[in-house]
Nucleic acid binder design. Structure first.
Lengths: 249, 249
DNA sequence: TATAATTGTGTATTGGTAACACAATGAAAT
DNA sequence: ATTTCATTGTGTTACCAATACACAATTATA
């Protein structure tokens, strides 16, 4: 079988392409149906779930490898991607055989993993399993199963840092469709923060950032008063992303 | 010569001890004479300056290797050490020969480096050069020379993140002597932030944190009114460090 | 046509930061 | 000894932003 042969080649000769002992894992967040989602892969061997990850080519930057991995799993380019932590505990890959046996493939050795989180638009994602997995799909953040290694902790840490980043960075451009309503934006924040926010104060704060542009009415579909549609002013959004939104001192 | 032999052995057989392609660099901050300092090393070969760094042993966590490096360069243990970024650009080591030549030592290959910053008490440090350097000393943050590779950028990034961390974490325990005055603490903040702060508001804010304990008068040495001495309440300090000090949402 | 849920907008209150002033101290100068 | 002067200790006011809260408008559905 072709896939099998490819996999075998990967085990045998992957170390000619990729740097040993170094991996990249991505926590890819999406937002759908008022729920925060993470993209996960199911391993062929064992059936356990894990984060989308990969390795760093010899002449490739770590950032670029994260971009590549993301592109391969989602089909999406040009995504907001943020390095958030590097995981370097030798015991992080629990369950993995770390014997010094030379016979073992490079891939069974210890890996230090650089963690990235990404914010993507749910509907634009076309989930693609990688060579080691048979399935790739979204999981609700609240029902994520027990993952391999320290991947649950990775998600936890990514979420924690995402929440901190909310304090001084705008959010939404990569998680929402181009046009969205204020309530939708609020749901996104509430979902990420796991906390209810006051509708009126939220709106004031958001508009106060000066990165939103109001459009016209919408949705005959909604069963109630039609909310306005908004769109991010990309220039101002990017500026705010770069500079930060204020900050303590 | 013994040192030469040791160095040669390090080049030839270091890869039996350390993982290839992975390094750790430390931005060690100290505070002295109202100035922020960084500890730097001078290379034997070429005489250029660089950050204290090292490599990760096969069975050692990346965090532990940072602790070890710190201990080796400063003699200090139990220090506040924070991973702040991983530098993974293949071109980051400008000037380094990255040819695929197999004859070259493992150390001439590409390295991805995990950056840590540390806050240490200046007076407690006993600077020790490592095997590749002939000198280890403090530099004023404002007069740091051009360093090797991307080390200047590393310092910049460390400082940037340190400033952000100031917003929601206490600071000073590892940078000041046990007993210190309010003006001294303020100088520390002003130095790091590179900005003047109002004396009275600063005091209110600091005392408001509830992590300081006031002692008795001090310093016949000062040419003016003797300021109070303070000490950190370590328990409350640690708690504040762990929980963070508040935060936007 | 009435209902119910939801959206759009405005106001009062509060809390914390920023701006600011004056009395007290203590070594150095006279 | 007395004066001087930089520095410290402390409090008050002003302002801005976040919070709490209320009412009118809209729209599909009953």
């Amino acid at each position: 079988m072709d896939a099998d042969k490819q996999l075998q080649d990967f085990f045998l000769r992957g170390d000619q392409i990729y740097m040993p002992h170094l991996s990249v894992d991505c926590v890819i967040f999406g937002f759908h149906d008022n729920h925060l989602k993470v993209l996960l892969l199911k391993w062929k061997k064992g059936g356990q779930w894990c984060l989308p990850g990969g390795f760093v080519k010899y002449a490739e930057s770590v950032d670029d490898s994260a971009v590549r991995i993301l592109k391969e799993r989602t089909g999406i380019d040009n995504i907001f991607l943020q390095q958030f932590h590097t995981f370097g505990d030798p015991k992080r890959e629990k369950g993995k055989s770390l014997k010094v046996a030379e016979k073992k493939s490079w891939i069974h050795k210890r890996f230090v993993s650089v963690g990235y989180y990404a914010l993507v638009e749910y509907s634009k994602v076309n989930p693609q399993p990688d060579i080691m997995s048979i399935e790739c799909r979204w999981w609700d953040i609240n029902t994520v199963p027990t993952l391999i290694y320290d991947h649950n902790k990775m998600i936890e840490k990514a979420l924690q840092i995402l929440r901190l980043d909310l304090n001084d960075h705008p959010l939404g451009y990569n998680l929402l469709p181009e046009k969205f309503t204020m309530p939708e934006l609020q749901r996104l924040y509430e979902t990420i923060l796991d906390e209810e926010l006051d509708r009126r104060n939220f709106q004031k704060r958001m508009l106060g950032l000066g990165i939103l542009e109001r459009l016209k009415e919408r949705k005959t579909g909604g069963a109630h008063k039609a909310p306005y549609l908004y769109r991010f002013d990309k220039k101002k959004y990017d500026k705010a992303m770069k500079q930060g939104l204020s900050g303590g001192w």
